[in-house]
Structures are given as C-alpha cells and as structure tokens.
Design a protein around this nucleic acid. Structure first.
Length: 192
DNA sequence: CTAGTGATGTAT
DNA sequence: TACATCACTAGC
C-alpha cells in the first residue's frame, strides 16, 4: 500500500526516518519495476541542522527542492559521480529531507515475505546511497518528482517492525557539521 | 588508507 | 570567471 501524502507532511522528520525503516521503495521506469526494502535512513532537519544543505536558511536552485511540500524526491549529484536519493517531508517552506542510505533488493515474488526471508540474502544488500540509486535507476533527472505517482513511490512495511530491530546511530560523512555530526539521526534495520 | 569526479556554491 | 567543496565508492 502506497504511503499517502499525509505521511510525508508530518513535521517530525526524525520520527519519519525511523518509520521508513522496513518500508519498500519502488521505481518503475520504462516498464521495469524494481523494489528494495529500506534498511537505512538519515534525517536532515532543516535550517537548524548544520549537516543539512538548507542549514542557516541557505536557499539555492539545487536546495529549492527541499523547501517544497513533502512527498517528492530530492536527488542531487555528489562527488561528481553519485546520485543521492532523498525523500522531502514536511509542509512547503520547511526544508526537511530523509536520505535513503541502504536497502535490500526485493524481487516481485519476495515482496510479501517475512523479514526472515531477507536475512539469508544479506550479501545482496545495497549498502550505500550511491549504489542504491544506481541500482534503482534513480538520477538527478528525477529531482522533484512526486512520490505519489507511478515512477517512484514508497509502500508501507509488509510486516511488523519492532523498535528493538532498529539501531539508532550518528550520521555518516558529515564531519563538516561540527557538533551536529553527533546527532542520532541515522536509523539502521537490524533484522534480528 | 587514498584517488577520482563534476556540479554547485562562494569568493573574487 | 576562478577555486574549493562535497549527505560517496572502489581499489589498494
């Protein structure tokens, strides 16, 4: 079941990042349908978060997407090579976003199985945001696309995700963020 | 550990 | 117009 617009409009981006763990991310380009179980997310919490592009109210052409109403994709090129896929949340004017850092590929047949079915495929994990978007075929061309449409969308978890299955950690690759680099805004699905 | 990559942002 | 930076990955 596709997540509704109301999900993306919630104001607590950190909680949303946690709720996305266990959900599935789907793409459908040129008739090719792909899906991954989301196992790792990071929250970027607007103008007060030094790690966020929108920190201190920065507003540029690239960042503008983050300020739009939730429920769309924010995709940008990092290090000249990697297309990083984020989910924009909150109301228009509030630059919240959630980076999808990792997942487990689901074939259509596996999509409804219990998580125990995925654990045996641990080696198939797409760990890393660059690899994830590459595998799904997401690129900067999809920046700003709606997540309620038929190209990229998120579906609710098909099983119960317990708090004890989610690890909470500090974010990765944002040493420049000073003390905000230590904020526990990263969530990892442990499966067990 | 370090190199590579090119758009983006900030300073001239 | 120039230069530094970067929410990363692959390969030693």
């Amino acid at each position: 079941m596709k997540l509704p617009l109301s999900f993306y409009l919630a104001d607590d981006v950190v909680q949303l990042a946690q709720m996305l763990i266990g959900c599935s991310l789907h793409t459908n380009f040129n008739g090719l349908h792909k899906a991954v179980l989301i196992t790792e997310t990071e929250a970027y919490a607007g103008i007060n978060d030094r790690a966020s592009h929108a920190w201190n109210g920065r507003f540029t052409k690239r960042i503008a997407t983050m300020y739009k109403q939730g429920g769309i994709a924010y995709v940008y090129l990092c290090y000249g090579i990697h297309h990083l896929f984020n989910i924009v949340t909150a109301a228009e004017g509030t630059p919240h976003a959630i980076l999808i850092r990792g997942g487990i590929p689901l074939s259509n047949a596996l999509a409804k199985q219990q998580p125990s079915g995925y654990k045996s495929n641990r080696e198939l994990q797409l760990n890393g945001p660059g690899k994830l978007s590459k595998d799904l075929g997401i690129s900067v061309a999809h920046n700003g696309i709606s997540l309620l449409g038929d190209h990229i969308w998120v579906e609710a978890a098909g099983f119960e995700v317990k708090d004890t299955q989610i690890l909470r950690k500090s974010r990765v690759g944002i040493d420049y963020a000073g003390e905000d680099a230590g904020l526990p805004y990263r969530f990892v699905f442990n499966g067990a």
